[in-house]
Design a protein around this nucleic acid. Sequence first.
DNA 1: GATGAAACCTAACCTTT
DNA 2: AAAGGTTAGGTTTCATC
Lengths: 146, 146
Amino acid sequence: MDNIDRRILDELRQNARAGYGDIGSVVGLSASAVKRRVDRLVADGVIRGFTIHVDPAVDGTTTEAWVEVFCRGTVSPDELQRILSAVPEVVYAGTVTGSADAIVQMRSRDIASLEAALEKVRLAANVDHTRSAIVLTRLVQRAHED
Amino acid sequence: MDNIDRRILDELRQNARAGYGDIGSVVGLSASAVKRRVDRLVADGVIRGFTIHVDPAVDGTTTEAWVEVFCRGTVSPDELQRILSAVPEVVYAGTVTGSADAIVQMRSRDIASLEAALEKVRLAANVDHTRSAIVLTRLVQRAHED
DNA sequence: GATGAAACCTAACCTTT
DNA sequence: AAAGGTTAGGTTTCATC
């Protein structure tokens, strides 16, 4: 894993169907040198797979929100995790620096089900209040399944 | 968007580098018929892009932040998208309701590169200021590659 | 769905460090 | 050895019919 590998990964992240020659002309290698590196990255498990990014409207999860969670007193990350994992609409959550205790990303089919899911979070023990922002337009969404 | 399109999407989700002939033999079409459908799915925006899944441990994106972006006057979503897409550390972005104009999720190797990426966002035209929260503990991360 | 030219992938071989 | 370049073949893509 050197710098050239990282640049190859960046190129493939942008276009996983790019030709080896095209990648090579960006990173300064021949097509076969790029192929060898990509094959190695796949064999080593660095590249887990080649996939596509599909319009979420096709899947039907169109409504999305970003929620700051403020708790009373101290709440352990373990407890927050337990509470938030129980809500299927919660797609991402993490404790953060700043005035909020946690940041939560939610997705659902419509506003009504989003509100219901938000209620489940709010009613959890020690949650003082939340501050939500509904996503209007998704601008960037890069795959990240880690 | 019929059932065959959905099966083609499933195939590409599993392997975005699969040949048209290979996909065709699974869904029961000729290679050129599959190519025409894939081209149409891309043109229609159903397929947003071809990308790779990278082992997160390997590329070491351990530092993560949520950033609220506040702009001066009105900024078009298109312009925001153009600016934010150009910063590779931006993993997610969307315009939102509330006082902030957009919410941005960033990931990078360390605090220094996160700060550098944040600078790139801040220097963009019409960005008034930003408010960041560094993620301390990731509590929930569900796969969502749409 | 079929065809043919152009582009691409792939493996073997050679050169360099 | 290890890593890149070059070449030649077979395969795939892609426009056209």
